[in-house]
Amino acid sequence: MVTPAKDAASPDATLKSLFAQIPTAVTIVTVGTGGERYGATVGSVGALSLDPPLLMFAMKEDSTLLRRLDVGSPIGFNLLAARQHDIARRFSTPGIDRFGLTHWCEENDLPRIDDALVWIAARVRDWVRLGDHMLVTAEVKHAEIEAGAPLVYWRREFRSLAEYEMVGSDSR
């Protein structure tokens, strides 16, 4: 059994170690406003509702991307494929031209990352401040799915689910 490192000087270290045990799909969230494009790597995207079709995601409240959103704003979700870890790193690195180094196109007035496993065009429905993050809900307007394994982030590393043996059946 692995236990988080105990650091009396930083109780956050234990919490970060705990959170690192929760695997998350890696998604690039994108917006385009006034000819400008913004995108960020987000590991907290999840399904919320089928009726209406809603997604949720969370980002630090001081995020540049969040400052570009209002209720009704278009927003894109690019769930990355296992081989796209370089794109995930790029969109989590501040101070670089993220789109200049990435193959992408514009779809539904949003930046869409080429070869992403899932593409979703949505509109911001609402948000709420929780701790130091904003939880945003978005209504799905269009979605496309490609075959393949997703990129996941687990134990502070990018991984592919294809690396792991299937332990059950998803044909319920």
Results as ranks from 00 to 15, higher is better:
Arg89Trp: 03
Ser49Asp: 05
Val71Ser: 14
His133Lys: 03
Met1Val: 10
Ile22Val: 11
Thr27Asp: 08
Met59Arg: 07
Pro150His: 09
Arg112Ser: 04
Ile120Lys: 12
Glu146His: 11
Asp115His: 08
Pro23Tyr: 08
Glu61Gly: 06
Ser160Thr: 00
Ile75Tyr: 08
Gly46Asn: 10
Pro4Gly: 13
Ala143Cys: 14
Asp109Asn: 14
Gln21Tyr: 04
Val42Ile: 12
Ala121Gln: 05
Asp115Leu: 01
Phe91Leu: 04
Thr27Leu: 06
Leu80Tyr: 07
Asp70Ser: 14
Arg67Ala: 13
Ala116His: 02
Arg172Ile: 06
Glu146Pro: 00
Trp104Ile: 00
Ala20Met: 09
Ile87Tyr: 08
Glu144Trp: 05
Ala20Trp: 03
Pro53Leu: 03
Gly32His: 11
Ser169Ile: 04
Leu101Tyr: 11
Gly100Ser: 11
Gly32Ser: 12
Ala58Phe: 01
Thr14Ile: 00
Pro4His: 09
Ser49Arg: 04
His85Lys: 10
Glu146Ser: 12
Leu135Ser: 11
Pro150Gln: 05
Pro94Glu: 14
Asp62Pro: 02
Ser49Asn: 09
Trp119Leu: 01
Lys141Gln: 15
Met134Ser: 15
Thr41Val: 02
Pro94Thr: 10
Ile28Arg: 10
Ile75Pro: 05
Val128Gln: 14
Ala13Lys: 10
Pro11Cys: 07
Asp70Phe: 04
Ala8Arg: 09
His103Thr: 07
Gly131Met: 04
His85Ile: 01
Pro11Tyr: 06
Ala25Thr: 09
His85Glu: 12
Ser160Cys: 04
Pro150Phe: 01
Asp70Gln: 14
Pro23Asn: 03
Val136Ile: 12
Gly95Glu: 04
Glu36Met: 10
His103Ser: 14
Val31Thr: 13
Gly46Ile: 01
Met59His: 10
Leu55Glu: 05
Leu130Phe: 07
Val152Cys: 13
Ala9Lys: 13
Arg89Ser: 10
Thr14Pro: 00
Arg159Cys: 02
Glu36Ala: 14
Tyr153Pro: 03
Gly76Met: 02
Phe158Asn: 09
Asp12Asn: 08
Thr33Asn: 15
Glu144Val: 05
Ala122Cys: 04
Ala20Asp: 09
Leu18Arg: 11
Asn78Tyr: 02
Glu61Ala: 11
Arg159Pro: 00
Asp114Phe: 02
Val167Gly: 14
Gly95Tyr: 02
Gly43Gln: 06
Ala58Gln: 07
Asp12Val: 04
Ser10Thr: 05
Ile22Glu: 15
Arg156Thr: 09
Ala25Ser: 13
Leu110Glu: 09
Ala143Ile: 07
Leu66Thr: 04
Ala13Asp: 10
Ala81Arg: 13
Ser92Lys: 10
Arg172Ser: 13
His142Cys: 06
Ser63Gln: 06
Leu15Pro: 01
Phe158Val: 06
Pro111Cys: 06
Ala149Pro: 00
Glu36Ile: 02
Pro94Trp: 03
Met134Val: 08
Met56Gln: 13
Phe57His: 08
His103Gln: 14
Glu163Asp: 15
Ser44Arg: 03
Leu151Glu: 07
Ala81Leu: 03
Asp126Val: 01
Asp170Lys: 13
Ala20Leu: 00
Leu161Arg: 14
Asn78Met: 01
Glu106Met: 07
Glu36Trp: 01
Glu157Ala: 14
Val2Thr: 15
Thr24Pro: 05
Glu163Leu: 04
Pro52His: 07
Pro53His: 05
Val140Gln: 10
His103Asp: 14
Leu54Gln: 09
Arg172His: 11
Leu80Arg: 05
His103Lys: 15
